[in-house]
């Protein structure tokens, strides 16, 4: 899957939760953990580990709470 598409999808999710009350990073992490397949989460976490260029700060903040793939 193209990195660009993953980044866009993650940022879209972050944009929705950025206006919600409560722990936004937790909500983003929960949504990604629930609906993304393991290879997608792995690709995202790798990208974040490599600096997370292009990702919303909220996605990066959510990273530690995203369910580890596999």
């Amino acid at each position: 899957m193209s990195q660009e598409k993953l980044i866009r999808m993650a940022n879209q999710i972050a944009a929705f939760f950025a206006v919600q009350r409560g722990d936004q990073a937790e909500a983003v992490a929960a949504h990604i953990s629930e609906s993304w397949a393991a290879p997608m989460r792995a690709a995202l976490l790798t990208h974040i580990a490599e600096g997370g260029t292009g990702l919303d700060a909220l996605v990066i903040a959510a990273a530690p709470q995203i369910r580890p793939p596999g």
């Binding site: 899957m1 598409k5 993304w36 397949a37 997608m40």
Partner: peptide, 12 residues
């Protein structure tokens, strides 16, 4: 583990 959605299957 949640699986792939149609567009994700095509990407993969």
């Amino acid at each position: 583990e949640p699986g792939l959605r149609i567009p994700n299957m095509l990407d993969a």
